[in-house]
Structure formats: structure tokens, C-alpha cells
């Protein structure tokens, strides 16, 4: 464990908590893409199947359980408890456009051809693009609530910090995994446009509104 990985994990955890609290406190999930949340749930479930086969540490197990349970809770809040507030009309990105290519790529480019390894690789590829329905929703409505911007910033920072962690692990532990690195790079790049707007607008006290 190094500082980049720890802060990355904490950013990830913070993002999830911000989102749950936003929905719970405002009793509304408007501006939130249910499709991105379903995709993240699929990511966690397919990646953390090793909870049943492989013990790493109490920290690792606890975080995995938190990610799976909180993402299921988020999906429940959006599609059941507060479904009247869900922006169904704007959340129109097709999930199969992300899921099917991720499956195909995971079958082709992976370390080993085993069920667990292909599912793990699929989860890495799907996570890289799972935010697209959310970014698409923001671009369709042209704005995001400030709290949603904080959520996106925390979630985007997490994989960026993991990139620094992988550089660290390459130099100090001799670890290298190109699948994680390339997917993590793509994932971080997808947030760049948003990061720019976040720093230039939200941090200056303005709402995130897309330029016309």
C-alpha cells in the first residue's frame, strides 16, 4: 500500500458516499445516470468475485464489500425508492454499446483464459467507460448540480491516483500490468474535459454549466 493507492481508494469511497448522501438528503436522484450506476454495480460484482476464493487483507475485503453493497443501494434508490425523480428521459445512453465491446475485448486481451480472469478483465474495461452515460446525461441537460460535480471529481480522481500508484509499483515493487494501466489511462482521460470545467467553474463558486 502506498500513498497514491490509499488516497485513490479514499477518493473512490468519498465519491460513493457523496452520491448516496446527495440522493438520500435531497430525496431525489435527478441529474444522476441510473445506467452508469448499474454499470458500476456490474463492475464491482464481476471484479470482486474473488471475495469467495482469495483472501488478501481485512482492508481489501471490507472495501470490496462496501463498494458492492453501496452500488446496489444506489441502484435501488434510483430505480425503486426515488424512481419518480429519476431523469429517465435524459438517461438515454445505450448500456450494450459499452458492455458488449468490453466483453469482446476481455475475451481477446486478458492474461489467462479462465472465467475469473476474463470477468476481472471485463470489469477493468467496463469501469473505464462506465461513466459515459453520466457524462452524456450532463451534456444533454447542459448542467450539473454542484454536489454532482463533487461526486464526479472524486470519482475521476480515483483512477488518476491509481495511475500514480502503478508508476510507484513499477519502480519500487517491479509490478506492471498493462491491462490496468491502459484502461485506467482511458478512464482518467474521459474525465479531463469535466476536470477543466470543475476547476474553472465549480471551484470558483459557480454551478457547472456547459459552454454553449
Amino acid at each position: 500500500m502506498n500513498i497514491f493507492r490509499l488516497t485513490g481508494d479514499l477518493a473512490h469511497l468519498t465519491a460513493i458516499i457523496i452520491l448516496l448522501l446527495k440522493i438520500w438528503k435531497t430525496r431525489s436522484c435527478s441529474g444522476i445516470s441510473g445506467k452508469s450506476q448499474i454499470l458500476f454495480t456490474v463492475v464491482y460484482i464481476t471484479r470482486y468475485l474473488d471475495l469467495f476464493t482469495n483472501y488478501i487483507s481485512a482492508y481489501n475485503t471490507l472495501m470490496k464489500i462496501i463498494f458492492v453493497v453501496s452500488s446496489l443501494a444506489t441502484v435501488f434508490l434510483i430505480y425503486f425508492k426515488f424512481k419518480a425523480t429519476y431523469d429517465r428521459n435524459h438517461d438515454t445512453f445505450r448500456m450494450e454499446f459499452l458492455i458488449i465491446p468490453s466483453i469482446i475485448l476481455a475475451l481477446l486481451i486478458r492474461h489467462e483464459f479462465t472465467v475469473m480472469e476474463v470477468l476481472w478483465t471485463f470489469s477493468i474495461y467496463l469501469e473505464a467507460v462506465a461513466i459515459l452515460p453520466q457524462l452524456f446525461l450532463v451534456s444533454k441537460t447542459g448542467e450539473a448540480e454542484t454536489i454532482t460535480s463533487h461526486y464526479l471529481f472524486a470519482l475521476g480522481s480515483y483512477r488518476g491516483l491509481y495511475l500514480l500508484n502503478w508508476i510507484w509499483r513499477y519502480y519500487f515493487e517491479n509490478f506492471l500490468d498493462w491491462i490496468s494501466i491502459v484502461a485506467g489511462f482511458v478512464q482518467t482521460v474521459l474525465y479531463c474535459d469535466f476536470f477543466y470545467l470543475y476547476v474553472t467553474r465549480v471551484l470558483h463558486g459557480r454551478k457547472l454549466r456547459l459552454p454553449a
Partner: peptide, 10 residues
């Protein structure tokens, strides 16, 4: 060079 097959990350 080892690969990250330990899957010790989140």
C-alpha cells in the same frame, strides 16, 4: 517483471 495477478488492488 511480475504481473499484477495477485489482484490485491480494488
Amino acid at each position: 517483471l511480475k504481473s499484477l495477478t495477485l489482484k490485491d488492488e480494488l
